[in-house]
């Protein structure tokens, strides 16, 4: 198992992403950060804090569980659900979806479906900590913490203080 990002590198990547979000959305006043369950949620919280530090703007944070929207329920059991809670009606807002790893794009497809059922945002953008490639759908991220070329025989593991009690990103061959 090789570590590809250490805690301070994750921190720096998030600060850069936060700057990009601010720049792209001109101060982020009409923006909601929505973390995808499980690890997107703390990342969205961190981005909101960083933005507050820079600009003293409080960007509201929500969470989204895409379990009910997945297209592979038959293969991967999801009989537990995390919370879905948006701080505000998304209609007319800019939604920044936040997730840890972007891979096939299927999670984001499900998240877009879920969002569509919750309202009609003005725009949806995507921020990810790691983009590891191998897309199976026409989806691309707007903000990327780190581009990490991988082979599909490898596994990328993200661990965060909030959810896992330790922090870092690792890459390994699948068993």
């Amino acid at each position: 198992m090789t570590q590809v990002m250490k805690p301070d590198e994750i921190e720096r990547a998030l600060r850069r992403v936060a700057h990009e979000i601010l720049e792209r959305n001109k101060g982020a006043t009409e923006t909601l950060l929505v973390g995808i369950h499980t690890r997107g949620a703390p990342l969205a919280e961190r981005l909101s804090r960083v933005i507050d530090d820079f600009e003293h703007v409080k960007v509201p944070v929500g969470t989204l569980d895409i379990g009910l929207y997945r297209d592979d329920l038959d293969r991967r059991p999801t009989t537990e659900l995390g919370a879905t809670a948006l701080p505000d009606d998304p209609t007319g807002k800019i939604i920044v979806l936040v997730d840890d790893v972007l891979y096939t794009g299927r999670t984001i497809r499900a998240a877009l479906d879920a969002l569509a059922d919750l309202g009609r945002p003005r725009a949806v953008q995507l921020a990810v900590l790691v983009d590891r490639g191998h897309r199976q759908l026409p989806i691309r991220p707007d903000f990327v913490g780190k581009n990490l070329p991988t082979s599909s025989s490898e596994r990328v593991t993200v661990r965060l203080q909030e959810t896992d009690g330790e922090e870092g990103i690792w890459i390994e061959e699948k068993a």
Partner: peptide, 9 residues
């Protein structure tokens, strides 16, 4: 409780 109270699960 949603406006569209239906999911595709």
């Amino acid at each position: 409780d949603r406006t569209i109270p239906k999911v595709p699960a």
